[in-house]
Nucleic acid binder design. Structure first.
Lengths: 227, 227
DNA sequence: GACCGGAGTTAGCCGTAGATAACAACCGAC
DNA sequence: GTCGGTTGTTATCTACGGCTAACTCCGGTC
């Protein structure tokens, strides 16, 4: 085993992107280029390096899958990112819709020591402000079964569990509507034809398109407590 | 005025080094090479760039002095560094003898927004854990007149004000001896010939060489309160 | 005033990680 | 089965910020 050189920022970004894109499946060059905002040749190039370094294994038509080691590194980054986001919101009082970019930078530069101190300071949180579970030090992540809010039938009740990082404006809108992790929602009306969605959060009604709700994940609840 | 590209990490390091080396005078290539742990040609090279960008002005034999703009940037980095060190110690509970390296990295990567939040969280501290004053947002720094502890005559009393970042082992030793900002010291004996120094801190006596005390700065106090 | 040594510079190289342009390979449609 | 568009690759270039080797330049000493 060679002396492990610390990963560069770029590598860490690629590994994380492959991880989030490739849940169970492999990530293609084009997907990665879009996700990382680089050109396709740059991706091919970097994938070749990561493959040489045994962090990814290349599949059909250049698609990439993480090796065990790559997966470990990716989860390490996910952990760092989520701890930092939680910190920025809980301790520094920043807004959860705007901390993503900062965490994105800091996750690459905070030392293990400082990260641990931050984690300790917050008493080892298990969820970030968007509701995502934080992997433990060994990279283990509780597997949950969540449904996209837009998949629920009219009348269903659920608790919001995760807001998957998307566009900031959308997140702000959701937040204003009360769609934050932990909130109870009732689907008042779901029209499959035109994609209109009427939901009730904390007693208030909101009408949104199902596109506009893409990224909100919930856990269904049996009985409807909201009216 | 051209659209200001943000400085790179390297440039920020050079500016800071020139600032700390060149108190009133210019910094030479060799000094910078040593301080930044790079080769002399690298320094010449970077100084040429910084000069082109109007951040430093070159003097006799390549020596560098900060321009007004360079000075502003350097003080910006000093401010960031000190705020971060204070944060690491006060909020995260890390040890003041070991936070330097972390602050050194983070000062380049923390966004203005996060830095402000940190500053706010600590209620705008004016001194870092080593006693150094923190420049305000406009880069102003209270000018103080401090004396090196080793410059005091036998019998003199003083309050420790600054510990200038040196070697970690030395800092730890000083800390164990009680030589921290705010501590009162009495010089029990100062032998100019052999450089032996006997000091009294918090009632305990310590014998050190004047070399071993280089970096401790104090403010003299008239009457000796310690016995 | 010649010479030596240290300080600085010049020339040319390396690795990282991007980019574009041009080519190849594959897939689906017809 | 051929064609067109999508997808990926190759070749080559760029910028940054390092490096070494080999020079020049300057300040003193003898």
């Amino acid at each position: 085993m060679k002396t492990t050189t610390p990963l560069t920022r770029s590598r860490e970004d690629y590994l994380k992107a492959i991880h989030t894109l490739g849940h169970e499946r492999a990530a293609t060059v084009t997907e990665l280029a879009r996700a990382l905002e680089v050109s396709a040749p740059s991706v091919t190039n970097m994938l070749a390096r990561l493959s040489r370094e045994n962090l990814v294994s290349l599949g059909h038509r250049g698609s990439a899958q993480l090796t065990a080691e790559g997966e470990r590194e990716a989860l390490r980054m996910v952990r760092r990112h989520r701890i930092l986001e939680t910190f920025l919101v809980q301790v520094l009082g920043l807004d959860w819709s705007e901390v993503h970019e900062d965490a994105e930078v800091l996750e690459h530069h905070v030392s293990e020591r400082v990260l641990d101190a931050i984690d300790r300071h917050m008493q080892h949180p298990t969820e970030d402000p968007h509701g995502h579970p934080i992997p433990d030090r060994r990279g283990r992540l509780p597997r949950r079964r969540l449904d996209p809010l837009t998949g629920l039938p009219a009348g269903a009740c659920a608790v919001v569990r995760e807001i998957r990082d998307g566009d900031r404006r959308r997140m702000t809108r959701w937040k204003q509507a009360g769609l934050v992790p932990g909130a109870e929602v009732r689907v008042a009306d779901a029209d499959e034809h035109d994609g209109m969605f009427e939901i009730e959060v904390a007693g208030r009604r909101h009408v949104l398109t199902s596109q506009g709700l893409d990224g909100v994940f919930v856990e269904r609840v049996r009985e409807g407590r909201a009216s």
